[in-house]
Simulated assay, not measured.
Amino acid sequence: MGQRAAIYARVSTSDQSCERQVTELTAFAERGGYDVVGVFKEKASGASDNRVARNRVLDLAQARQIDAILVSELSRWGRSTQDLLDTLNRHCQVVCDG
């Protein structure tokens, strides 16, 4: 059994879809031996701190129910270096396919 991972996909506007990200991340997880325990999709600005799906993923990581968070690129997780550093300081492993 591989590491437990959550897939997190985000788009910024309602006319966009998360499906390409989810498809690519699912394939990445299979190649990497990750056991995907959840797929979290969100339509929200990356600049927003209050993203419900991202907060749920962070809660899973903090509860040690997942070992990794899979994102298609770091800009899908957050828009600033400080945001990324804050996340990493919460002891999460963020894995990027790209």
Rank of each mutant, 00 (worst) to 15 (best):
M1Y: 12
G2D: 08
G2Y: 08
G2H: 07
Q3I: 12
Q3N: 14
Q3R: 15
Q3F: 14
R4Y: 11
A5Y: 07
A5Q: 05
A6D: 03
A6E: 09
Y8M: 01
A9L: 06
R10Y: 06
R10F: 04
R10C: 04
R10Q: 00
V11W: 04
T13P: 03
S14M: 10
S14P: 15
D15T: 11
Q16G: 05
Q16L: 07
Q16T: 04
Q16S: 04
S17V: 01
C18N: 15
E19S: 15
E19P: 02
E19K: 12
R20F: 09
R20Q: 13
R20T: 08
Q21F: 01
Q21A: 04
Q21E: 01
Q21T: 08
T23Q: 15
T23E: 15
E24K: 12
E24R: 13
E24Q: 15
L25H: 00
L25E: 00
T26L: 08
T26D: 02
A27M: 10
F28L: 05
A29W: 05
A29G: 02
E30F: 08
E30H: 14
E30Y: 07
G33V: 07
G33E: 03
Y34C: 08
Y34H: 08
Y34V: 02
D35K: 11
D35V: 11
V36D: 05
V37G: 05
G38K: 06
F40I: 00
K41S: 09
E42A: 03
K43L: 13
K43H: 15
A44C: 09
A44V: 05
S45T: 06
S45G: 07
G46T: 04
G46Q: 05
S48G: 04
D49I: 10
N50I: 12
R51E: 01
R51K: 02
V52N: 10
V52I: 11
V52A: 15
V52H: 14
A53S: 13
A53G: 07
R54A: 10
R56D: 13
V57L: 00
V57Q: 02
L58K: 09
L60R: 09
A61S: 12
A63N: 13
R64A: 13
R64V: 05
Q65D: 14
I66P: 02
I66W: 03
D67H: 11
A68I: 01
I69K: 00
L70S: 04
L70Q: 03
V71A: 01
S72D: 11
E73A: 11
S75Y: 02
S75D: 07
S75E: 05
R76I: 04
R76H: 00
W77V: 00
W77T: 01
R79P: 06
S80W: 01
T81C: 08
Q82G: 13
D83G: 08
L84Y: 13
L84I: 12
L85D: 04
L85S: 06
L85K: 07
D86Q: 12
T87G: 09
L88H: 02
C92T: 14
Q93A: 10
Q93V: 11
Q93M: 10
V94F: 01
V95T: 09
V95D: 07
V95M: 06
C96K: 07
D97M: 12
G98E: 08
